[in-house]
């Protein structure tokens, strides 16, 4: 379907947003790329779905998507959840772009709460949906103050949160939205991805963009930018590990979801990244639980 056809079929501008709005968002994105990790305010628009459903990510995607792009949308790693399906369909109808579930085929990936297991390349852009962009909010309620703290790199308070974790749990228990420092400067909330995905952000060849619709913020990690997870010398950053492998594809290196099978409490672990799991099975890999 061509761009013109899309406009005709829906009555909306290409990718829903008007061109002025897209230009405004693109300017914010360019600034975000120029100042890695810095939260750029933007005039977030009302979208045809509620805040909390990815309105920030959708606006970023709408501003940068072109007719030649191939879009993949994941929610917690899966391509087939309601949120992922509806956003993918939204762009298929308003922009007429091709869509895919295959990570390697996609030029643009919008995600909620995961980074794909398959390493991304320089031709790809990853757009994160962000509910709360301010990593300092946990300890400082005043927006004016958090902005000043960012401006002055006054970040002592960030380690207070990690300190509290260790004091209460004996280890850093923060598992999601684990704070990172981007390019040795700004502290950034990576959105609620599991900390398992944090190392994938570090020096990633793909451009990473973050959109928070309700909070009206856009920020970015340009390709190959160092992204360091905060930690203590005697409590270094580490990612989750599992004693099990994926029941379906046998992968031992991916982020696993625990699935309850029945009322007797039988459980199995499967890859959270559905495409990664499917690709492995297509290549002949099998887990213990598959086909049982």
């Amino acid at each position: 379907m061509s761009e013109a056809a899309a406009v005709q079929s829906t009555g909306y501008n290409f990718a829903y947003l008007d061109e002025q709005t897209k230009r405004m968002i693109r300017r914010a994105i360019l600034k975000a790329i120029a100042v890695p990790g810095y939260q750029v305010p933007f005039a977030s628009r009302e979208m045809p779905l509620p805040f909390g459903w990815g309105t920030g990510g959708i606006q970023v995607t709408a501003a940068i998507i072109g007719a030649d792009d191939r879009l993949k949308v994941i929610d917690q790693g899966a391509d087939d959840t309601t949120n992922a399906v509806s956003i993918r369909r939204f762009f298929a109808r308003t922009a007429g772009v091709a869509t895919t579930t295959r990570t390697t085929d996609a030029t643009l990936i919008q995600t909620r709460h995961r980074v794909p297991e398959t390493p991304l390349g320089p031709h790809q852009i990853l757009v994160y949906q962000v509910p709360i962009p301010e990593p300092l909010r946990w300890l400082e309620a005043r927006e004016a103050e958090t902005r000043r703290m960012h401006g002055l790199a006054d970040y002592g308070v960030m380690h207070v949160k990690l300190y509290e974790d260790i004091a209460q749990h004996g280890r850093i228990a923060t598992g999601y939205d684990y704070p990172v420092q981007v390019g040795q400067r700004y502290i950034m909330a990576p959105s609620p991805i599991p900390k398992f995905d944090n190392p994938k952000m570090d020096r990633c060849p793909a451009l990473q963009l973050f959109g928070a619709g309700r909070e009206k913020r856009i920020y970015a990690v340009p390709p190959h930018t160092p992204v360091k997870s905060l930690d203590f010398e005697d409590h270094p950053f580490s990612v989750e590990t599992w004693s099990k492998r994926c029941s379906l594809c046998g992968a031992g290196d991916s982020y696993l979801d625990e699935v309850i099978m029945d009322d007797t409490g039988r459980r199995m672990f499967v890859c959270s990244d559905t495409d990664y799991c499917a690709e492995r099975r297509a290549a002949g890999h099998r887990g213990e639980g598959d086909g049982a």
């Binding site: 002592g156 380690h159 207070v160 005697d234």
Partner: peptide
Amino acid sequence: IGERLMAAGWRHYG
């Protein structure tokens, strides 16, 4: 108490 130490660059929890 630890906040000022962490702000001053202390990175050893113990």
